[in-house]
Design a protein around this nucleic acid. Sequence first.
RNA 1: CGGGGUGUGGCGCAGUCCGGUUAGCGCGCAUGGUUUGGGACCAUGAGGUCGGAGGUUCAAAUCCUCUCACCCCGACCA
Length: 567
Amino acid sequence: MRLSQLFGKTQREIPAEADTISHQLLLRTGMISQVAAGVYSFLPLGWRVLKKIENIIREEMDKAGGQELGLPVLQPLELWQETGRDRAFGKGLFTLSDRRDRPLVLGPTHEEVLTQLVSRYVQSYRDLPKLLYQIQTKFRDEPRPRGGLIRVREFIMKDLYSFDADEAGLDESYNKMLQAYQNIYDRCGLPTLLVEADSGAIGGKDSHEFMLIAESGEDEVIYCERCKYAANVDKAESVKEKVPPEEPLPLEEVATPGVTTIEEVSAFLNVPRNHTLKAVFYVADGELVFAMIRGDLEVNEVKLKNALHCVDLHMATEAEVNQAGIVAGSASPLGLKGVKVVVDESVTPGINFVAGGNKPDTHIKNVNYPRDFKADIVVDISRARAGEGCPRCGGKLLSTQGIEVGHVFKLGTFLSEALGAYFIDEKGVSRPIVMGCYGIGLGRLVAAAIERYHDDKGIIWPIPIAPYQIYLCPLYREGSQVAEVAEALYAQFEAEGWEVLFDDREESPGVKFNDADLLGIPIRVTVSPRTLEKDSVELKQRSEKEAELVPREEVITRLKGLMAHAG
RNA sequence: CGGGGUGUGGCGCAGUCCGGUUAGCGCGCAUGGUUUGGGACCAUGAGGUCGGAGGUUCAAAUCCUCUCACCCCGACCA
């Protein structure tokens, strides 16, 4: 491709909209252009990167036994009502009506349509297993799109769905996909971490995410420094600091004027924070919930949501709390009525806790479970933190930020049951198909790659996903052979099957070099009067500091080496 | 949805508080010329309903009201 002909050009200045590095670079390089919040056009350069990734994904899906198909974006809302997932998605679902006022949705994912399709073609265990996938545009009305391609409302996604006869089959499909995903990231040159993930209120038993570790990542990952344990903080478990049980003492009311926070209680009464009880109020699907946790810990809302099996969960407002006759800041589990009580496991050992008195300026000492209060649910609802113990090996947990670049789920049978996707097994018994689903957002992967591979000059593409592999950079001067040599090299490179961005513009060296760096093309080949004096060209890898002079007759060999090395 | 911010040629910004003639600067773009190893220089030129609607005024980018869009933080988020 001749750069002079390319649609799109680089920008010197950082667009004001962009805060994240990948967003800035995507805009400056002319790879994407914004149309609306969370909606982007891809220009040729950006589209090429996307296609590279798409091809790698397609190859790995096929290799794993997947079959590609096409599914509609436009889907009847009715289908979503059958599985009840219209409620689960809520406002995230883009909806519209046709001319006859039939409600439709723009598919945010395709389990419903595909499961329905599969139910028409799969009747026997002999028709299973099946791995079916699509690479298509999906729509989700995110509350807040952000970070360029990191979180958008319209996006291209690869989704594979597995259909198996039983759990063992699902496990096998699941493992195949884990391997296929690993291959994809390896081939893209992107190191990822496999972490346990929350499957949401709807998911089945297992779920994993692939995380690209990056400071700008919006997810927190908890991992063990000793063993392989790694989990999204939403899901992560941890061994908390133990507090030795104590002999229960009688309850005692104490005056605590103006004291409300755990910090203040601890200081005022001179008790450690892990001897206090923290009360947090939530509203779960309209019902007030009282969550109780040790004072030094924090509530993990995802865990709480799962424990409650609710769709909507938010922290209660002071008004909502007061309405129930409870004093926020001095809330007590004692004598609570008409409120669901969820108690974290940290609270059950008999420790003489300090809890709220349920009237202003009062706390109660020596509160113990279950002597003094009852719980509707006792479960782990605590947030794991770095420094705590690994739930597997007891080692020390660490924390880092990551970008979610893949998510796989064991769905189970709830969808096949809802949509009537049954098959007849060997014994003639009708059973629901066991499902899994496996997604990768392509655009996000592009952004994640840039977050991972860039410097202050621009992008540094790994060769397999670079829009072009070679940046051919002639520095023209009248009366020199530069133009002829460059043209010859261009033809030669293309004949080798390499993808070449030929900077045939009449620009100054500075402009060309800076654009080459900004665009992040892995290998730069410079031809100038200076190099021709020595019958050479200059080779420079974007990832390396130093350039190198290479005799002309050796260029092809050297480049072959670089290409092979980079896979 | 709550909090904060921004809308002025393709991009980045000044001008708005305190209304006043042809709305300015840098980049980019066009033409001509001089340049050519890390974002060159000179000259000439094109390009703007000042987000939108309404209002105040002799006069509005500037003041008032309403509204829209986008960004950031939070809530939210398969």
